[in-house]
Simulated scan of single mutants.
Amino acid sequence: MRIASFNVENLFDRARLLGGDDWSTHRTLLEKYARLTRLLQRPTYTADDKALIALLLVDLGLEKSDSGTYVTLRQNRGRLLSRPRAGGLTVVAEGRRDWVGWLELRTQAVTELATHHTALVVHDLAADVLGVVEAESRIALQRFNVDLLRPVSDRIYGHVMLIDGNDDRGIDVGIMTRGDHPIEGIVSHVDDADLAGPIFGRDCPEYSVSLPGGGRLLVLVNHFKSKGYGKASESDTRRRRQAERVAEIYRQRRAEGHEHVVVLGDLNDFPGSAPLAPLLVGTSSAPSDLRDVSAHPSFDDGGYPGTYTTGRTANKIDYILCSPAVFTSITAGGIFRKGVWTASRRWEMYPTLTREQDAASDHAALWVDVDL
């Protein structure tokens, strides 16, 4: 059977703030969006809170309207603010109980050719079990399966599942399996928390997949905290907390008797990084026996070990990690890059991929064949 992981970077719609070339500006706006979202949850707004809310609303382009270029303010019941005719805005709510609403990131459509290239990647991967990162919803994933994959493939997926996570930008994680590999159990960790708060920005769902010859494959799909915005120290700490929790879940499942376990997805850091150490190396008291498929002698990276953009070593951020029983059963593995744009033509692309915005993703897909 073939197991694969692919960060599709949204199938149909993507938050406008996550696209475009001016990432430095977009990163600042995302930070302000996140700060304002937290601020609006306070039960009582002080005078300083109101001043900061007003300032952030203006910075996000919401001074004159509830609908800005990148963000929409939903005011369903009650009012957060008023906009005097003389100009400006005034926060009129005294706290969270005075109004019902939220901030919402505006989206833009992914190009039709980009979604077609995504379908080609999934078709060419021919995975029996595919972990999907950054899909908008289960409905979007099912639409992709039926409407886009079917025209290019003689076999679509019989089982499609995605659990809504903690990220309101529509970048959740899910799984697609062939008809002879039904999903027989699901465990969500969307509510896992420690003293610092929620652990997973999306989720770490566990999918129990039935194997045709009997037995089960346990698949944990992940998307760790990005380095893209926020303080580096804070994002490093968040990724380490996530790695620690996934390692804890893995050890627990192994202790319960699960032999065939795979942890896969976009972990947003390179193998030697401190944040990923609890998962890739473990600790002195609990060493990790998870093995990266790229360490297997049969693995072929095509000369570029990285999985993101240029393929540099530092851009190896996508993983398929295997328990010992799965790792010893590997027969082949590699990185599939034909849907990733490269201006230097350092690897083969689809003939129709002639501009960056039509790429299937910035991420290459990972695959591994195992004999279970």
Rank of each mutant, 00 (worst) to 15 (best):
M1F: 13
M1Y: 10
S5H: 05
E9K: 07
D13P: 00
R14A: 15
A15F: 14
L17H: 03
T25K: 12
H26G: 09
R27W: 05
L29A: 12
K32A: 09
T37L: 05
R38G: 13
L39N: 11
P43M: 02
A47M: 14
K50V: 15
L57G: 01
L60S: 14
G61N: 03
S65I: 09
D66R: 00
G68Q: 05
G68C: 02
T69G: 11
T69M: 06
T72A: 13
L73H: 12
R74K: 05
Q75I: 00
G78Q: 00
L81P: 04
R85T: 08
V100P: 06
V100I: 11
V100A: 03
G101T: 04
W102C: 05
E104V: 12
Q108A: 15
A109N: 13
E112W: 04
L125V: 08
D128C: 09
L130I: 15
V133Y: 10
A135S: 09
S137V: 03
R138P: 04
I139G: 00
L141R: 06
R143N: 10
R143E: 08
F144L: 03
S153D: 09
I156Q: 05
H159A: 03
M161I: 06
M161R: 14
I163H: 09
D164K: 12
D164P: 07
N166K: 10
R169G: 06
R169K: 01
G170L: 09
G170D: 07
I171V: 15
R178N: 07
G179K: 02
P182H: 05
H189Y: 15
V190A: 13
D192Y: 03
A193F: 07
P198E: 15
F200Y: 13
Y207H: 01
S208N: 09
L211W: 15
P212K: 01
G214I: 03
L217V: 04
L218H: 04
V219I: 14
L220H: 05
F224V: 07
K231D: 13
A232Q: 07
S233A: 10
S233H: 02
S235I: 07
D236Q: 11
R239T: 11
R239I: 02
R240V: 05
Y250T: 02
R251V: 06
R251D: 12
R251K: 01
A255V: 10
A255P: 03
G257R: 07
G257N: 11
H258D: 12
H258V: 02
V262S: 10
G265L: 13
D266P: 06
D266V: 04
P271K: 06
A274W: 12
L276D: 04
T283H: 14
T283A: 09
A286T: 05
L290C: 04
R291S: 02
S294I: 02
S298C: 08
Y304H: 04
Y304M: 00
P305K: 09
P305S: 14
G311V: 08
Y319L: 01
I320N: 01
L321N: 03
L321A: 05
C322N: 01
P324L: 11
F327G: 01
T331C: 07
A332Q: 08
G333S: 11
W341L: 10
T342I: 03
R346E: 01
R346S: 12
E348N: 10
Y350V: 04
L353P: 09
T354V: 00
A359H: 05
D362M: 06
H363Y: 00
A365Q: 04
